[in-house]
């Protein structure tokens, strides 16, 4: 009997480890959510930089507004091409741990951060189909997200944090967007003397939109009307 004790304890230990690992993705997502949950609203200055092969557009600046749980608005003057998804919409899903299934996908290094990769599958039928999150185990911040929604397709976003990391508010988000081919007949565009573009530009099938946030005002409130005002 005594001989069998180490085997018994080993079995108990393995069972305990298995349970701990199984809880890990949910715990990681909860930690990321808890960090962001301290933000009820924020306002900030936003610079938007575009690097899209089919669109030539200069940098823009404006104001960004967010209000829990899913109100988000970028106020800019003039024509702008923005990502279709609110970059903070996932936190609305993460608030209820029964609303999704989380599966761990191991680890992956982004920059110098060894991230935990977690796939999130919503339980109920909603716009989000699947999300993959790269989480920094040290700061509990989302470093990268890849979301697939019914309405907007797949979007990739890379987050960089600095001064407002304690709120999980990024200083920079780089959205990578898949591009559809943009082609107009020359008679429609009346574009008769344009030189052919460099082959590297033609081959690019993705574009990036960079959001640079600054002067955050967190939980200071602002009128609800900013979300309904016409630009």
């Amino acid at each position: 009997m005594i001989r069998k004790l180490p085997l018994f304890f080993s079995f108990i230990l393995l069972f305990a480890m298995h349970n701990a690992t199984a809880q890990l993705p949910g715990a990681m997502l909860k930690a990321a959510y808890n960090k962001f949950a301290t933000v009820k609203n924020f306002k900030g200055h936003l610079n938007v930089d575009f690097d899209i092969p089919t669109i030539s557009i200069e940098k823009m600046s404006g104001t960004v507004y967010y209000k829990w749980p899913d109100k988000f608005r970028v106020k800019l003057t003039g024509v702008a091409f923005l990502p279709r998804q609110n970059p903070f919409f996932l936190f609305n899903l993460l608030k209820d741990s029964t609303a999704y299934v989380a599966v761990t996908n191991g680890k992956e290094t982004i920059g110098n951060i060894n991230c935990n990769v977690v796939t999130v599958l919503p339980q109920q039928d909603q716009d989000l189909v699947v999300a993959k999150l790269w989480l920094d185990p040290g700061s509990n911040c989302v470093i990268r997200s890849q979301t697939t929604t019914k309405s907007s397709g797949t979007a990739l976003a890379d987050y960089t944090y600095a001064a407002y990391q304690r709120y999980a508010l990024p200083d920079k988000i780089v959205f990578t967007v898949d591009l559809n081919k943009f082609k107009l007949p020359k008679m429609v565009s009346a574009d008769l003397n344009t030189k052919k573009k460099a082959s590297s530009d033609i081959k690019r099938t993705t574009g990036t939109i960079t959001f640079l946030f600054s002067n955050y005002e967190v939980n200071k409130g602002f009128p609800e009307s900013v979300f309904t005002e016409k630009e």
Binding site: P53, T54, I55, S56, I57, E58, G78, V79, F182, K183, L184, P185, K186, V188, S189, D191, T194, K197, I202
Partner: peptide, 9 residues
């Protein structure tokens, strides 16, 4: 400005 393969703002 709509060009045959690009849009310029």
């Amino acid at each position: 400005v709509l060009k045959s393969d690009q849009l310029v703002v």
